[in-house]
């Protein structure tokens, strides 16, 4: 079976956050980037399906040139090839425009299954997978914690709130948004890293896709939120703050005996 996995490169979790001059993105100099966390789980799921059923895993990524590094990481872990939709201004796109761009290149592949992460760590739209399904005319499901395939049908474990789950069945092809924790992602091996050097990455300029450009929504500005709650910060050496905290918990908040 042919599986497309959508992988976004995002700023590293511990990267310091400085808002750029244009106020709609962050300063990219001096920060690291990494694979969006749930996308790593989606990739692992795709690789396992390929290992048990045969077929091909194709990575689709929309982003600037730097995204190649994350694409290569996915190839090193075992994906077969990749399509990179290149757009240095990808962060200006609204979710529908991003999904349209990815859908345009995915459509040509006619995959049996399309996996995305549940949510990106940077924009956090939480909707690209659902939009892809709508654009491609396919059924979808989100917050997926287990995938079973039999007789050309999917049986999925979908997460609900407060520790509940639900089984859902649907036909293939379909689009699934994968939740973190569904599996244990592998690390790339040295052999995988070497093999990845020969794997094809097809670059497509987003502008060449000829897609409509009117946005449905616009980010006007991003900003660091003002704290509204009064937190009492305790300063000093570890020993001093430890003593101060215990004192406060005992005698001020009265929550410790």
């Amino acid at each position: 079976m042919k599986i497309v996995v959508c992988i976004k490169q995002v700023p590293a979790r511990d990267a310091p956050l400085a808002i750029a001059e244009d106020k709609i993105w962050i300063r990219e100099s001096d920060i690291g980037f990494e694979m969006n966390e749930p996308d790593g789980y989606a990739l692992e799921e795709a690789l396992r399906l390929k290992e048990s059923r045969g077929g091909e895993v194709v990575v689709a990524s929309l982003g600037p040139e730097r995204a190649k590094q994350t694409i290569k990481e996915a190839l090193a872990k075992g994906a077969d090839r990749a399509i990179h939709v290149v757009d240095p201004g990808f962060y200006r796109l609204d979710p529908l425009a991003s999904a349209r761009s990815l859908a345009a290149v995915i459509q040509k592949e006619s995959p049996d299954l399309i996996l995305t992460g549940l949510q990106s760590d940077d924009h956090g739209f939480g909707q690209t997978g659902v939009l892809l399904a709508e654009r491609l005319g396919l059924p979808h499901s989100t917050i997926i914690m287990q995938i079973e395939i039999s007789d050309g049908k999917l049986k999925l474990k979908r997460e609900l709130e407060a520790g509940w789950f639900q089984w859902v069945e649907m036909p293939l092809p379909a689009v699934l948004s994968i939740q973190s924790g569904i599996n244990k992602p592998r690390y790339a091996t040295l052999k995988g890293i070497m093999a990845a050097k020969k794997k094809p990455i097809e670059s497509v300029e987003r502008a060449s896709l000829g897609l409509p450009d009117e946005p449905t929504q616009t980010i006007e500005r991003i900003f660091v939120p003002q704290k509204t709650k009064h937190t009492e910060f305790l300063d000093g050496s570890p020993k001093e703050v430890a003593a101060a905290l215990i004192e406060k918990l005992r005698h001020e908040a009265r929550v410790l005996s």
């Binding site: 962050i26 940077d122 929504q217 616009t218 980010i219 006007e220 991003i222």
Partner: peptide, 19 residues
């Protein structure tokens, strides 16, 4: 003007509808 979180809650964004 809607406000939503970005970057895992480390920043907020003001967002408007177009069209």
């Amino acid at each position: 003007v809607l406000t939503r979180q970005m970057f895992q809650g480390r920043a907020n964004a003001d967002v408007t509808f177009a069209g």
